[in-house]
Nucleic acid binder design. Sequence first.
DNA 1: AATGAACTCAACCGCTCGGAA
DNA 2: ATTCCGAGCGGTTGAGTTCAT
Length: 305
Amino acid sequence: MGRSPCCAKEGLNRGAWTAAEDKILTDYIKIHGEGKWRHLPKRAGLKRCGKSCRLRWLNYLRPDIKRGNISRDEEDLIIRLHNLLGNKWSLIAGRLPGRTDNEIKNYWNTNMGKKLQNGNKELGSSSSLAGQDSDPDPDPEPGLKPPQNTTTSGPCLIRTKATRCTKVILNQELQPLMAASHSSTHNNNDNHIKIEAPSPFMDSEGVTNNNVLDFMVDDFEIDDNVFSDLMNMKVPSCFENEVIAMEAAADNSSGDQQGCYHLCPHPISNNETCFINNFSDDSILHSSEVFQSMSALMENELDWL
DNA sequence: AATGAACTCAACCGCTCGGAA
DNA sequence: ATTCCGAGCGGTTGAGTTCAT
């Protein structure tokens, strides 16, 4: 059985809203409040679909809508948030007061899509993961620039609704590092984060990788650099029941075993990952501490929500 | 000035999710 | 457990506007 349509399409106005319609809708919501969108048109005397009313109100008529050009700061934030969240426009909009998901989506598709395309041409000529030192662009897009200082932690600016991370995917290049630092001591700490591979993972060369690690992280050594990197990168307070990808990648151009790790909510759909920082081959990725620190960070987000 | 191309963004559409019954 | 419904999300469309020739 198919679901019933949100409204009868016959006899309804479509297309651009008139000033009169706007006034009717605004007046109605001022009196009756938001919600009950399906019944709103009839009660308000509008020949519009309820969904259309809702959209018009949320994207245009709300009093707290901020109109005008996206500022440089806002653009910076949008880029960073998009790196972390992907096309989660409503989440991104939630971090930009007065901006709507539709506006940000449009802005991204028109402005940022082009900018990033141009940026990727430059980035593509060198290692996008480990070659930032040779980046010829003195002022790349802020969201693409990895942190220069990995020891100074600023306030965590990027926050999402979710507060807990439960899943982590590692690609194969990271497994030896994990195995090397894995302790045989089992720890039942609740802060553990399960590492699992529920779905294919796109590795650093864009190859789908079904064979990723699947075990519990427990009891690793502490590495302050990793944590400070995460803090410095303004790691999202992560995404409940979503996936964080961590990836190591060799820099073949230099021959160094430099790698990087990055976090992203959807490693498959969002292959433009969030660059956090390099770590050299002699660094040990002390994952447990990273994850536990992330958990603590996420718990702290509760106060903010 | 005319015209076609490119761009912008409000609006629409189909789908999913969560809660209530 | 299942169905229904309201709400919300993200992708897409297309009318209006701006730009280039």
